[in-house]
Simulated assay, not measured.
Amino acid sequence: MTLLDTILTVAVPASTTASVPTRLDPVQLFLDADIVVQAVMAGLILASVWVWAIIVSFSIRMARLDRVNRAFETRFWQADDVEPLVRGNEDLPSRRIAAAGIAEWQTSSRRGLKDKASLRERLSGAMDAAVTHESDSLSEKLNFLATVGSVAPFVGLFGTVWGIMNSFFQIGAQSNTSLAVVAPGISEALFATAIGLFAAIPAVIAYNRFSHRVNAFETRLYRFSDRFHASLSRELETL
């Protein structure tokens, strides 16, 4: 064997080995995928971005709301006259709950306090309705997290099934059962499921965590409502 033959024998396998990718490239997997799989991936990526936006914004909102609402309740119970606090423009759940109770009290007072027991029921109903409204307002955005958490894996699975079907179509079109023919397509298809799980897992965790925080906050609002209702009931007894 001549020196030239030896060089060619060594060089050809080396160049072939260098061209083989050594790790997965997510961007290349997306670019090489079928148009349907690409659409699925793009939708899941957008959903994942929106999920993380909700997670960050809701965390900041709940932390601030809990802090300022606690401060308002402290001022409320320490005040000799609560009406100036209630008439303020602070965007706080406890203020609106107290405002609902006072509004019902004033409306009934103008009509005459003929039935104190009925007034107590109306006060309780008005403030409970306000608590429910505040809770629903807080949990409104959480519906998207629940939707992504339950639907995203199946959307990713749809992309995977479509990609695998396309790979089998390529087998039939090329009459070649080699793994090299179907492996790239299967990898791209499975990548869609991976993105679906990437979007769904944080959404489910965040939904469960935030639901617990909203429920705990709602319980605090009910305690505030009950305490204020008891205070109004005591004042009613003196009339």
Rank of each mutant, 00 (worst) to 15 (best):
S57N: 09
I45T: 12
P84T: 01
P26W: 06
G101K: 05
L92M: 04
R96G: 12
S57H: 08
D34L: 06
E121V: 00
I45G: 11
L31G: 05
T74H: 06
I97W: 03
A79S: 14
A18Y: 06
L44H: 00
G101H: 07
P93I: 00
W77D: 09
L119F: 05
V27T: 15
S48L: 02
S94P: 04
A47P: 08
P26T: 01
R122I: 01
R75E: 07
N89A: 12
L46V: 11
L85V: 05
L119H: 03
F58W: 06
D91T: 04
T22P: 03
G88H: 12
P26E: 08
I97N: 12
V56H: 09
S57L: 07
I102K: 15
W52M: 15
V37D: 01
Q28E: 13
E73L: 14
K116E: 05
G101F: 06
D66P: 11
I102D: 07
G101I: 08
V49R: 13
W50H: 11
S59D: 09
W77I: 07
D81S: 13
E83D: 12
G112T: 04
F76Y: 14
F76C: 11
L92Y: 14
L113H: 04
D34V: 03
I35R: 14
Q106V: 00
S15V: 11
V56K: 11
R61Q: 10
R87A: 01
R120T: 00
A53P: 00
L29A: 08
T17E: 02
A103E: 03
A100Y: 01
A99R: 12
Q28K: 15
R87E: 05
G101R: 09
Q38N: 12
I35F: 10
T17V: 05
A42K: 13
T22A: 00
L24I: 06
S109T: 00
I97R: 04
E83C: 06
P13Q: 00
A71L: 10
E104L: 04
V37T: 10
R96C: 09
R67S: 14
G112D: 06
A14N: 13
I102W: 13
W105Q: 01
R61M: 08
I60S: 09
V86Q: 03
L85G: 04
R67P: 08
T107P: 08
A47N: 03
R96Q: 14
I102F: 14
G88L: 10
A42T: 10
E73K: 14
F58Y: 10
Q28P: 06
M62V: 10
M62G: 03
R110W: 00
S94L: 13
W77H: 02
T16V: 15
S19V: 09
V51N: 02
A103I: 00
R122N: 02
E90D: 09
P93D: 02
I35L: 15
P21N: 00
E83A: 08
N69L: 07
L119A: 04
T107R: 15
I102E: 08
A63V: 14
I60P: 04
F72K: 07
I54F: 04
F30L: 10
W52L: 15
P13N: 01
V49T: 12
G43M: 12
V20M: 05
T22E: 07
R96D: 15
I35H: 07
D80T: 14
